[in-house]
């Protein structure tokens, strides 16, 4: 009896792992295909099953996993491509992403402290207004936002890329941090206040250091959303020198000629690698379900 039960359990575990492995395979396949393609000769189609049209007599037929040789120099070629300032794109992405993260963390943590730890007339009403602005997805309001930024003279500037950043909702960030600030114990605040500490002092020396996990979560999401955003930098920039990597990549397609898939995939990998490294370092803030349940509220 017990033997059949454990036999069933082993079978069950086997089925679950087989399903999970298949899923992981399907999820990763496009990325592996991208990486493999990027290492093939720049002017060819990587062969999988197709026979070459004109097989050279006697030469071994190159296949996907065994090209005549690997071509890592595709990466230096794309990075140093004379017609596109790829390094400048990368610099812009770094500046804009760090700018958005710092700016939004500052705004959101200040507001979250006010809403969570202080009392003032109209506080809860104002917080409700904050929540209601979360119902307006910024990408929808991009037409008027564009005109506003144009009127401010911020098109094609870092200010225009960082400040009116439509993809990171300040209201959402405030909400996320407030939910965390509310749970912090009040005794430290009170002790500090009795010792003559100001609200600013409590915010800076007590609340912020205790809220590191929440701040890191918000920073991690802000980083990814900003780095991978496409729509706003596409519209807010017009000169090549202000493009971010994400927008720059979208013009690689035309710049290289659409048939040079190894180079296209190299360019895609160059945009993808930094964000993947960041994600793997910070992944617990994305996939820990307790953090996510905080997000959900």
């Amino acid at each position: 009896m017990t033997r059949t039960l454990s036999g069933r359990r082993i079978l069950h575990g086997f089925v679950v792992y087989a399903l999970l492995l298949a899923l992981a395979g399907v999820t990763m396949l496009p990325f592996l295909w991208m990486a493999l393609t990027s290492l093939h000769p720049p002017n060819t189609q990587p062969p999988l099953f197709l026979e070459p049209v004109d097989p050279p007599a006697g030469a071994p037929v190159p296949t996907l996993f065994a090209p005549e040789r690997w071509h890592p120099e595709n990466y230096t070629y794309v990075l140093l491509f004379p017609e596109l300032p790829v390094w400048r794109f990368a610099l812009n992405s770094v500046v804009v992403t760090l700018g958005v993260v710092l700016f939004q963390l500052t705004l959101c943590s200040l507001a979250a402290y006010g809403f969570a730890r202080l009392r003032f007339p109209g506080r809860d009403g104002l917080f409700t207004v904050f929540l209601m602005t979360m119902m307006v997805p910024a990408s929808v309001m991009i037409v008027p936002l564009f005109l506003l930024v144009k009127t401010l003279g911020w098109l094609d500037t870092y200010a225009g890329l960082i400040i009116p950043y439509p993809y990171l909702s300040t209201a959402f960030g405030t909400f996320l941090l407030r939910q965390f600030f509310v749970t912090l114990p009040r005794s430290l605040d009170d002790a500090a206040r009795i010792d003559g500490c100001s609200d600013w002092g409590i915010f800076w020396y007590i609340t912020l250091p205790s809220a590191r996990p929440a701040l890191a979560t918000l920073a991690a999401f802000a980083f990814i959303w900003t780095w991978t955003d496409f729509y706003w930098p596409l519209l807010a920039t017009s000169s090549a020198d202000m493009r971010t990597l994400e927008v720059g990549l979208s013009v690689f397609r035309d710049a290289y000629g659409t048939n040079k898939w190894p180079l296209q995939m190299t360019a895609a990998m160059i945009v993808l690698i930094p964000v993947l490294v960041f994600f793997l370092v910070m992944q617990r803030y994305f996939t820990r379900s307790d953090v996510q349940s905080g997000l959900k509220g």
Binding site: L23, A24, T27, M28, P30, F31, W33, M34, T37, I224, W227, T228, F230, L245, E246, V247, L249, S250, R253, W261, Q264, M265, A267, A268, M269, V271, L272, V275, L276, F279, L280, Q283, F286, T287
Partner: peptide, 21 residues
């Protein structure tokens, strides 16, 4: 973690590889 990767990836890069696929 693996299943989360597409969500944090550049959608431009993702679109390019899907065109190719």
């Amino acid at each position: 973690t693996i299943l989360y990767i597409p969500a944090v990836s550049s959608q431009v890069a993702i679109s390019m590889v899907w065109i190719w696929i």
